[in-house]
């Protein structure tokens, strides 16, 4: 990744804020996505993942802050930029009156780099017949068509908003494989939001956790696995009010004591009570600890 990080980020979000009425959904979100990375954006329901993705693509107006895609504000993207962008919305509805072939044919005409073979292969893999009208497809099938539409132009930047939410496990694996293939073959940068932690672990190179309107964690997946640990702190010893070195979160446990997430905890051993226990941390546990 060293070579990649030297390049300017494809997506840059600075202090982005979004309110719905009096409810603050995004509160000063800052994020940079380097070329070639596969970023998994996780967060609880209603955390603002879709809002963040829509704001950074300019589909939704932000109330504060700024977003840059390909180095420019999204509303200034020209056709050349649009040809390098693929997007799968969370609810892929529309074009009801068209068949799959008609819709993909219309879209293919807009992209000089449209990969017809890839589209045909995915249609075949997912058993989608081109003469079927979109209005007759199930939500999962519509999502598959939307994914094909987004992948076939072989974009430089692929943004997927919960692409696997309506897919069956087989279709989900196919999607993940295609994402990895795109990233490896073309160096495509991928940003996808999801609840499914196992998907993240399979394909993501980086993870960003959105919680309370802010990015609580943004790091390479390997770094997270290597450097983050869960510390169980016994109830018998008072927990200092000031955060421990490398502390990311703390949570009281029902059975007594505390659960803390620490970065580089191994370096700080000896500063804790003798009963404290340090455990490795699965990604799902990390999500629960940080978003609980």
């Amino acid at each position: 990744m060293d070579g990649i990080t030297a390049q300017a980020p494809l997506i840059e979000v600075r202090e982005l804020g979004k309110d719905y009425g009096k409810r603050r959904i995004l509160d000063g979100v800052s994020l940079a996505v380097e070329p070639g990375c596969i970023l998994g954006l996780v967060g609880r329901n209603g955390a603002g993942k879709s809002s963040l993705l829509e704001c950074l693509l300019g589909l939704r107006r932000a109330d504060r802050g700024s977003a840059l895609v390909f180095g420019k504000p999204p509303e200034r993207m020209d056709d050349a930029d649009k040809m390098r962008l693929g997007y799968v919305p969370q609810q892929p509805d529309g074009f009801d009156w068209m068949t799959i072939d008609e819709m993909l044919g219309m879209i293919a005409g807009l992209y000089p780099g449209w990969d017809a073979q890839l589209a045909a292969r995915l249609l075949d893999t997912w058993d989608l017949y081109g003469d079927r009208r979109l209005s007759t497809l199930s939500p999962g099938e519509r999502q598959q068509v939307a994914i094909i539409r987004a992948l076939a132009p072989r974009p430089a930047l692929l943004v997927l908003d919960e692409p696997a939410s309506a897919l069956d496990p087989v279709a989900r694996r196919t999607l993940l494989r295609e994402i990895v293939d795109l990233a490896l073959e073309d160096g495509t940068t991928v940003v996808f939001s999801t609840h499914i932690i196992s998907d993240l672990e399979r394909v993501a190179s980086h993870v960003a956790l959105l919680h309370g309107g802010r990015i609580r964690l943004h790091a390479a997946l390997d770094d997270i696995k290597d450097s983050l640990r869960r510390l169980w702190w016994p109830a018998s010893t008072p927990l200092p009010e000031t955060p421990l070195a490398g502390e990311l979160s703390r949570r009281p446990l029902e059975e007594g004591g505390w659960s803390l997430i620490l970065r580089d905890a191994d370096l700080q051993a000896g500063h804790w009570p003798a009963e404290a226990r340090l455990n490795p941390l699965a990604l799902e546990d990390l999500f629960v600890e940080l978003a609980a």
């Binding site: 693509l57 300019g58 589909l59 993207m77 056709d79 050349a80 649009k82 040809m83 962008l85 997007y87 919305p89 609810q91 892929p92 509805d93 529309g94 074009f95 009801d96 879209i107 005409g109 807009l110 992209y111 939307a146």
Partner: peptide, 15 residues
């Protein structure tokens, strides 16, 4: 409200 994909295409599709 009901044709979100079309609305997205208006903004993101080239041409």
């Amino acid at each position: 409200t009901k044709r979100r994909t079309q609305w997205v295409e208006l903004y993101l599709a080239p041409g």
